[in-house]
Write a protein that binds this DNA or RNA. Structure first.
Lengths: 228, 228
DNA sequence: GTCTATATTTAGATAGAC
DNA sequence: GTCTATCTAAATATAGAC
């Protein structure tokens, strides 16, 4: 396993054609941009943290904007890859829905997700294309995933058939994310405990099941429907 | 009515002791900071937009940080003032809840709210105190307001008595805000239509009423409760 | 490819006249 | 209080040696 991930820094023949330093640069840039935003990070700081000179940095990346774009693009790609990994239908509905909610909440609260979100929001005015790319790779992809799960549960007759899966997926995402997401993004609750996360998941799933689960004896004329 | 709001720019006696230019400075700074963030806005740009010289700007504000803090503080104050204006209980529950949801969603989607939110998120790492102040003046105050409304509805017997008002308020806020908020913040849907807003309100209220409204014949042993 | 040293621009903040 | 002109520091980007 002469892994492609741990190449020597310099190739004797070609004198460092391998992108070892590029990795260092991108890692350093990601750390700094995610933590401090675009404008506050200097190319000097990136070079210093990556352990290279500024000239080397500019040999790999044509500009600060390009570097930032590359960092965000890679984060989005990683997010999208991780997204398609959970789909549970082989449990009773409450447990299955809790599993999906737990995965989703853990994902959006991860430091990586929070970091990209904050950065993209911050620089959205200057880099509208990045905001779009982030939305497609993150929220939109997550919503599509949830929508598929909901549709499958409808097909199995465990969720109400009259739900619009797209609208329901948006509600699922928003409710599960909850206020905890706002507090984490603002740094009010930087490190939520597992208990907080679990409580949020349980509370959200409780509401959604009450509203969406198929009842044995269907509610007829209940007071809940938006009459008028 | 020699209004205090429309004073002449210069007082003949004291030679402009009145803060007419301060208002211009704060307005210009608010526009720029909300649109482009802290680091991207130069003091030159603020002075130019305000129609004053940089020296005048520094005569009113000791530093860029202080100017930014003042801008955000005033926004937060305005938000807090506007928050305590809606509390409807004299309608049937669906209409009353829709009214509250409509007010809340309109408020968080307003350009002013979105601007502060984006700015505070962007600079939260550098100005943690501002993030806290924003949270207290905005989200926390809104949650308290919603919590009070929910508690009153519980007292009237129209919402389930076993709800935790604090938790429920957080869910109300998150669900009503919905995915539309994310899209607006990211600039994907910069100007949501009234129809989109109304659809979001109706869908959220529908879910919440199904989950929370007191039913004539209480649900016993329904399939919704999270039974392990 | 990589480094040191530097050119060029821009931004935050101030001195001194009126 | 307000302005013009300027100082100083820092940031983006590059030239030239190895």
């Amino acid at each position: 396993m002469s892994a492609i991930l741990s190449l020597p820094e310099t190739d004797p023949a070609t004198n460092a054609r391998r992108p070892a330093k590029l990795h260092a640069i991108l890692a350093a840039a990601a750390d700094l941009f995610m933590a401090e935003g675009y404008a506050a990070v200097s190319m000097d700081a990136v070079a210093k943290r990556a352990g290279v000179s500024k000239a080397t940095l500019y040999a790999h990346m044509p500009s600060k904007e390009a570097l930032f774009g590359e960092v965000v693009a890679r984060r989005c790609s990683a997010m999208a890859d991780e997204m398609d990994r959970v789909a549970v239908h082989d449990q009773p509905l409450p447990q299955a829905m809790r599993g999906l909610a737990r995965f989703w909440l853990g994902f959006v609260l991860s430091p990586s997700s929070i970091g990209v979100y904050r950065t993209v929001i911050a620089e959205g005015a200057r880099f509208p294309d990045l905001a779009r790319a982030f939305f497609d790779a993150g929220p939109a992809r997550g919503l599509a995933h949830i929508r598929g799960w909901l549709a499958e549960e409808q097909r199995r007759g465990r969720l109400r058939a009259d739900l619009d899966p797209g609208r329901a997926a948006a509600q699922f995402a928003a409710l599960v994310r909850g206020e905890l997401f706002t507090r984490v993004v603002l740094g009010i609750t930087p490190d939520p405990t597992d208990a907080e996360i679990e409580a949020g998941v349980d509370a959200a799933v409780d509401v959604l099941l009450r509203a969406w689960a198929v009842t044995e004896r269907p509610m007829t004329g209940g007071p809940a429907g938006p009459e008028v």
